[in-house]
Design a protein around this nucleic acid. Structure first.
Lengths: 214, 214
DNA sequence: GCCGAATATGACCGGGTGGTCACAGCGTAC
DNA sequence: GTACGCTGTGACCACCCGGTCATATTCGGC
């Protein structure tokens, strides 16, 4: 969707623009993000942005997609499923802890994730989330299906219900420890890693209670 | 927090301002909502808004809290808990179905709920959600505690974990059937009431599996 | 060295923003 | 009847927005 000028752009320049855009859209979301600020931070004229993308929305969509690709690449290690002999709930705790740790270490990707999940404009949100959800579901559903086949989860488990709740919990865990006002029950904001792990264990226990094979 | 002028305001005028604000903030969220538009729609001078509230943020916070109070008032019938002899999962299905039906009938309250839950600015979000969450938690936690006392839920149930997930599911059910791009698993957007009920049943079954007393 | 195409630039445009303030209108007390 | 205090008003302020475009700069082929 971006112009050929963007695709052929000098690597360093493209990375500067991308990082500035992730930071600005991450801070203020799509509609609140300022192209003036992005151009200034990237050390680039505003007019250049309109030679790379036809308009602001395409620019944001590109930034969001690029970000989701980076996240998926980094989480690939967990998508294989539990190691042989590892209980499924232990595995899920590990994976979610890794998930939280990733976003702790990558504030830029976390901010863009927040912007993606907190977008108000229905069209923008639908367009941007579509790609993100496809990436998650393509990985998560097979993971759960393999768990059923292996006997880790009950054969009659309602995987859609579990997936549905997981898709709510994942962004919550990615954001709540680092942004205020998201979790009034556990108060995840600003918690230490070991405290987060304890909460994750409680959530996983509650979540999987009806799914783990006995 | 609003000024005494607002509290003493003529009933009709206050309601006009409130409805216009709910519609505008509902459409475009806090930062995107225009005070000019609200004033015009309410048939009121913009200057008047600043005699009722000190600034835009206080205005939005008041609108959000007032909305949550109306929602809770409407849901009061469910907050008493299950009727004698009614299984707890049946009760929760009924309550959530009522919840969805309420937002189907009240697009203004639904839009404000969306704006509240999709706000990007951390300070605004924290301030606004604080009031909203307090309203919900004040009702939900006692409801679950009574369920434990009555023997509907297991005595060792992790109520915080359940509450935490419930606070994710509630806005999801309030919004996903009516706004696109929120539910990629069940595809709730645009579904009929009976289909929604079936999904709710599946979610409740999965959610309560580890909590219902046997 | 030179030319044409591609790219970079930033002043500029129309329009919208939250917030202010000098003034108008009105009801009431005396 | 008039002075006063509260409320309503909208033109106005400084500022910022996404997007444009004439011009400057760069670069590859010859």
């Amino acid at each position: 969707m971006p112009t050929s000028t963007w695709r052929n752009l000098d690597q360093q320049r493209r990375e500067r623009v991308l990082r500035a855009a992730m930071a600005e859209f991450g801070r203020h979301g799509y509609s609140g993000g300022s192209l003036n600020v992005i151009a200034r931070e990237a050390g680039v004229a505003k007019g250049s942005l309109f030679q790379y993308f036809t308009d602001k929305r395409e620019f944001f969509a590109t930034v969001a997609q690029e970000t989701s690709l980076r996240v998926r690449a980094e989480m690939a290690q967990w998508l294989a499923g539990p190691e042989p002999g590892q209980p499924f709930d232990d595995f899920l705790c590990d994976a979610l802890s890794g998930w939280v740790r990733y976003f702790a270490k990558h504030p830029l990707e976390r901010a863009v994730t927040a912007a993606t999940h907190l977008e108000r404009d229905p069209e923008v949100r639908a367009a941007v989330r579509e790609g993100v959800y496809r990436v998650y579901l393509e990985s998560l559903r097979p993971l759960l299906e393999r768990a059923v086949a292996r006997g880790d989860l009950r054969p009659d488990a309602d995987l859609d219900a579990l997936l549905s709740i997981l898709l709510l919990v994942l962004p919550q865990l990615a954001l709540a420890p680092f942004e205020p006002g998201l979790d009034p029950v556990f108060g995840l904001y600003g918690r230490q890693p070991d405290e987060l792990r304890a909460v994750i264990r409680r959530l996983v226990t509650a979540l999987l209670a009806g799914f783990i094979a006995r």
